[in-house]
Every structure is written in structure tokens, then in C-alpha cells.
């Protein structure tokens, strides 16, 4: 148990200065949003698509007040509740898409890099082609196709995000595999009779996935923006299916001219904060884990005072 805690705290205890504070601030912000996401039903005063309580309608586009801290919007929804529920949607989408990316991209990169040959070339070509596209455009196309298939659900948006981020995981894992498979320990594994599957699972996997966590946190920030962008364009999740910050911003667009600032400010603030938090975590982790950037914390060595001399001095 203590060992686990120590391991978890390692990025913190190992770093110093800017990297450390980036990591701390990032983790605090991100943790706050994760708490919101997990405990949304208890934290949010109302449901995300609730427009009345006990038969009384909420005011239409009502200003922030004691009952509605962040005010209400034109559809009578409580803005605070929607911001909190929106955290849940965002986190769900990001976790799902990263999960898909890791589950598909990592094994694909491993196999492709290990065996090489023409399947590898074709995969690299396809992934490069996806990578070369403007990612947002691609996300629009995919969510268009996938919402037709799954409806405007979290799953559809998560899958379209997966499609645009998978080349990164593939490339990172494939390239490290290509260099790692030349290592002597891989030949040594072959020399004891290990099959290709065993070599990939037990010898290469642990050595090539090390940069995936950093990639995942950095992508998470980007994914939030893409998700909000999709919502803003009206693609993806609809207001009544789930609360989505981007979609709320879109609806708030008309309010801005009428002096109704609260419908736009709070979802926007939520996006900015979560993206900042995730980016700080990613960059902080990068500085901690990447040996070319890392500055190790030097623990001062305190020598015990030499007893004999102190006694003499007395």
C-alpha cells in the first residue's frame, strides 16, 4: 500500500520548480472536474434537462440569483446544473475515446512495428493520411457518419474522436517497437525459444508503452476542445440527451447581444479551465517522465556533525 502511494507520488517528489507546480495545479483543476463528473447527481441542484421544480417553471433566461446561482437559459434550464452535468459528459467522452485509442492503437502499432513488411507500410500510409487531414474536419465527417449509426450519443462522439487520435498512438508505439525489437534482449528471448506473440507481450509491450500516458493526457485536453467544437456546430450530443458545454455555447450565442452574459460565460469558463488543467498535467508529466526535459530534484545531503570536533570545541 505504501509502495503504491509512493509510486503515485513519484512524479511529484521527483520534480522541482515549474514542472512540479504545473503538475500540482493541473491535477487539482482536473480532480475538481472529475469530482463534478462523478458526483453530478448530488452536486447539481437540478437535472440537466429540468425546467421546473415542483410544478413551478424556472424563469426564462433569468439572471443569476439565490435559487439559480449561474442563472437560467432560454430553454428554462439551470446553467449551474448544466455546467456540472457537462463535466460528466466531457469526462465520459474523453475516457472512452482514450480507451479505444489505447486498446486499438497500441496493439496495432506493436504488431505492425514488430513484423514490418508491406502490411506495416500500408498501415503507416493510412495513419499518415489520417494524420495529414485537418483533425477537426475529420472529426466532423466521422461524427456525421457515426451519429447516423449510433444516434447522437456519447459513444458516437467518442468514436469519432478515437478516429482522429489513433494515428498518434500507432506512430509512437510502432516507432518505439521498431527500435526496441533490435535490442539484444529480444534476440535473447528468441534464443530461449519464445514465439513472436510471447516476445511482443512479455518483452516489448512493457518497454514501448511508456510514452502513452503522457500522450493520453495531452490528447485529453485536445479532445475536450474538439468535443466542444462539435457540440458548437450542433453535431454530436443534443441538449436533451446530455449536457454539453459546446452545444450550450452555441445556444448562448443569440443571448450575448441581449446582454445575457451568464449563459455563455460559465460553460466557456468550464471548457477553458478543464483544458488548462489537462494540459498542465500533460506537460508536467512530460517534464517529469521525459529524460531530455527532466530536471531531477536533488535531495540535499546532510552530514551528521562530527561529534569529536564539537566536543573539542566545547
Amino acid at each position: 500500500m505504501r509502495g503504491v502511494l509512493k509510486l503515485l507520488a513519484k512524479p511529484f517528489t521527483d520534480t522541482v520548480g515549474l514542472a512540479r507546480w504545473m503538475l500540482v495545479i493541473g491535477v487539482v483543476i482536473t480532480a475538481a472536474f472529475i469530482v463534478c463528473a462523478v458526483f453530478a447527481p448530488w452536486l447539481a441542484p437540478y437535472g440537466f434537462a429540468q425546467s421546473a421544480v415542483d410544478g413551478t417553471r424556472f424563469p426564462k433566461a433569468g439572471a443569476p440569483s439565490g435559487e439559480h446561482w449561474f442563472g437560467t437559459d432560454r430553454l428554462f434550464f439551470d446553467v449551474l446544473s448544466r455546467v456540472i452535468w457537462g463535466a460528466r459528459t466531457a469526462i465520459e467522452v474523453v475516457i472512452l475515446s482514450i480507451l479505444f485509442c489505447v486498446v486499438i492503437g497500441v496493439p496495432l502499432g506493436l504488431v505492425s512495428g514488430y513484423f514490418g513488411g508491406w502490411p506495416d507500410r500500408i498501415l503507416v500510409l493510412v495513419m499518415d493520411a489520417i494524420f495529414a487531414f485537418p483533425s477537426f474536419l475529420l472529426a466532423i465527417v466521422f461524427s456525421f457518419l457515426l451519429t447516423g449509426l449510433f444516434g447522437g450519443s456519447v459513444l458516437a462522439v467518442a468514436l469519432s474522436l478515437t478516429a482522429i487520435y489513433i494515428p498518434q498512438y500507432f506512430r509512437v508505439v510502432r516507432n518505439t517497437t521498431v527500435s526496441a525489437k533490435e535490442a539484444t534482449y529480444v534476440e535473447a528471448a528468441r534464443a530461449i525459444g519464445a514465439s513472436d506473440g510471447v516476445i511482443m507481450r512479455r518483452y516489448l509491450f512493457g518497454n514501448v508503452v511508456q510514452s502513452v500516458p503522457v500522450l493520453a493526457t495531452l490528447n485529453a485536453a485536445d479532445a475536450i476542445l474538439t468535443l466542444a467544437g462539435l457540440g458548437f456546430l450542433g453535431l454530436g450530443i443534443q441538449s436533451t440527451d446530455a449536457a454539453e458545454w459546446g452545444h450550450d455555447l452555441n445556444r448562448a450565442l443569440a443571448d450575448a447581444g441581449a446582454g445575457i452574459w451568464w449563459t455563455g460565460l460559465y460553460p466557456g469558463l468550464a471548457i477553458v479551465l478543464l483544458v488548462t488543467g489537462l494540459t498542465l498535467v500533460g506537460e508536467g508529466l512530460n517534464e517529469t517522465l521525459n529524460p531530455t526535459l527532466r530536471r531531477r530534484r536533488l535531495l540535499p545531503v546532510v552530514m551528521p556533525a562530527r561529534e569529536s570536533t564539537t566536543e573539542e570545541a566545547r
Binding site: A183, T184, A188, Y203, G206
Partner: peptide, 13 residues
Amino acid sequence: VFQDPNAALNPAM
């Protein structure tokens, strides 16, 4: 048995 013992063992095992 290989030449370089530093490389012949998987660092993750």
C-alpha cells in the same frame, strides 16, 4: 550467452 549482459536482459523483468 550474449556479449553484452546489459542488453541481454529485458529491463522490465
